[in-house]
């Protein structure tokens, strides 16, 4: 059974089609890039998978089941915008995760946070944007999940922070688990991707193993993406 499957999945906001007839299968043990411009439907797709939106038609299956309580246990999700209360201190956020998720491992998370020289007594609101993003990513990656879904984890951070984020993803994702990373910053992450999905105007226009695509087009994924979406 596929870890994740979308069947003829569509989502309309009033009359506007945000996602059109998406068919997708995500196996285990892969890092997948969900690549598309702003407004292409990436976040809508991710929200449907995470049970934050209801499909207009079609369905999402996680381990063969519709999204719900069970799927939330096995999906670790990093949203584009934080849902954490910024008045919380780091150690409060850790406690919050511990209470909320059975599969959250506080010890490795504390260690990773310590490596950042972070004071656990510090409030999120007192940290730089880059630091807040690191903290959130550490929390999300410290769950032993089957599927990690990271919505724009590289948005608005400096190159050094990007490297740190990629390292954290590579070193912490659970063996046998899959990771879906949505981004429009392709050059920075393409080396860690097994497969790429190009999405545009709510439609999946290409899915391919990353190396196969490079071989076929003699170009980087970033370059191929730019060619595809030339305005």
């Amino acid at each position: 059974m596929e870890l994740l499957e979308c069947k003829n999945l569509s989502k309309f906001y009033d009359k506007k089609e945000a996602l059109k007839d998406v068919n997708l299968k995500v196996p285990r043990g892969k890092i997948i890039g969900l690549l598309g411009k702003n407004g292409s439907g990436k976040t809508t797709l991710i929200k449907l998978i995470n049970d934050l939106l209801i499909p207009t038609s079609g369905e999402v299956l996680i381990n063969g089941e519709k999204p719900g309580v069970e799927s939330k246990k096995i999906i670790s999700y990093l949203p584009e915008r934080t849902y954490l209360d910024k008045d919380m201190k780091v150690n409060q956020v850790i406690k919050y995760f511990e209470e909320f998720y059975d599969n959250f491992n506080a010890d490795p998370a504390r260690k990773l946070l310590k490596d950042l020289d972070l004071d656990e007594e510090q409030k999120l609101s007192k940290m730089s944007k880059g630091m807040q993003e690191k903290v959130q990513l550490i929390l999300v990656m410290s769950r032993k999940a089957d599927l990690y879904i990271l919505d724009e984890p590289l948005g608005g951070v400096d190159p050094a922070t990007r490297d740190y984020i990629l390292d954290t993803i590579l070193s912490n994702f659970n063996e046998g688990a899959s990771v879906i990373i949505s981004t429009h910053l392709i050059a920075d992450i393409e080396r860690i991707l097994d497969e790429v999905i190009f999405i545009d105007k709510g439609k999946i226009i290409l899915t391919s193993p990353a190396d196969e695509l490079r071989n076929k087009e003699n170009a980087s994924i970033d370059e191929i993406f730019r060619r595809c979406f030339k305005c």
Partner: peptide, 13 residues
């Protein structure tokens, strides 16, 4: 896994 981490590429690669 160690190798993938060191050279920052996908473990499957």
């Amino acid at each position: 896994r160690e190798f993938a981490m060191q050279i920052k590429v996908n473990p499957n690669t």
